[in-house]
């Protein structure tokens, strides 16, 4: 029963992750707050759901998504596949020869972010607190587009070999400028969305892509150039979420009527022309 052994293994790993969190919560609850929690049975059921859900989710990813994603990243960045794009393209490090790698980076960044459980959590909370003014789906699409653009740019950086810090510093300057123009309500949420994008689903796939690419492109060191994609994936969502909020604000200011907002297509049209 290899599946059962794997179940035990993932369960053990997840419990080990949760243990320090549970220890902190229980210690403070029992020794500092010393007051009974409301609905203890509901809470317990909820935690069991969260644990069981995470275990199933991780096992399924390991079974269905990660092996394919890793082989894909390896195949797309293999010199033989890249060389098929054009004669001697690899030797000259022609950035255009890596066309499918950018497409893959964009698509995988976008789609894995939409499935990221931590982002779902934050989007649900934001939607609930804003009484529906911040659409959960719109926020997630905006974040996913940010991650997609960020990872594509990060891949481009590995191909051409520009130092990471130039991109990141330029990104921070954009974030700081946007902060002064974006609606105040969205700013904390935009900052938070940078940190939540990269956890369970995105990181393993994206790291494989970066390392594979740094190995195949001549003149790159996988240990030094392989890092940094996660940084791109946490920077660009801030920009795209603030852009999304600015776009919706301009739109409602110009249109006058709230109408039926279609944030997905709205953000898409904003993002296509950088």
């Amino acid at each position: 029963m290899p599946l059962f052994m794997e179940l035990l293994e993932v369960l053990g790993a997840t419990l080990r992750d949760v243990l320090p969190i549970a220890a902190v919560l229980v210690t403070f609850q029992l020794f500092v707050l010393r007051r009974p929690l409301p609905h203890p049975r509901r809470l317990l059921v909820g935690w069991i759901y969260v644990l069981a859900g995470l275990v199933l989710f991780l096992m399924g990813l390991e079974q269905a998504i990660f092996p394919l994603g890793r082989t894909m990243a390896a195949q797309l960045t293999a010199p033989s596949f890249l060389a098929a794009g054009g004669e001697g393209a690899l030797a000259a490090v022609d950035p255009l020869a890596y066309g499918w790698v950018y497409v893959f980076a964009f698509a995988i960044g976008f789609s894995t972010t939409l499935a990221e459980p931590a982002l779902i959590a934050v989007a649900l909370k934001a939607n609930e607190l804003s009484a529906g003014a911040i659409s959960a789906w719109g926020l997630r699409v905006a974040v996913a587009l940010g991650v997609a653009v960020g990872i594509s740019l990060g891949v481009y950086r590995i191909v051409v070999g520009v130092p990471l810090q130039y991109f990141i510093m330029a990104g921070y300057v954009v974030v700081v400028i946007q902060t002064f123009f974006a609606p105040k309500r969205i700013v904390p949420l935009a900052y938070d969305s940078g940190g939540v994008t990269t956890s369970t689903v995105t990181v393993p796939l994206v790291t494989g892509l970066g390392l594979g690419l740094a190995e195949s492109v001549p003149g790159r060191n996988p240990i030094i150039d392989g890092f940094g994609l996660v940084a791109f994936a946490s920077l660009f969502p801030m920009i795209s979420v603030m852009a999304y909020a600015q776009a919706s604000e301009w739109r409602s200011a110009r249109g006058g009527s709230p109408g039926t907002p279609d944030p997905a297509s709205r953000v898409a049209s904003e993002e296509v022309q950088p």
């Binding site: 409301p38 509901r42 059921v45 909820g46 935690w47 759901y49 969260v50 859900g53 995470l54 459980p117």
Partner: peptide
């Protein structure tokens, strides 16, 4: 897995 996690958020983690 994702379904149970999202339900558990509302029942357990957030409260």
């Amino acid at each position: 897995g994702l379904t149970f996690f999202v339900r558990g958020l509302d029942l357990g983690l957030f409260p």
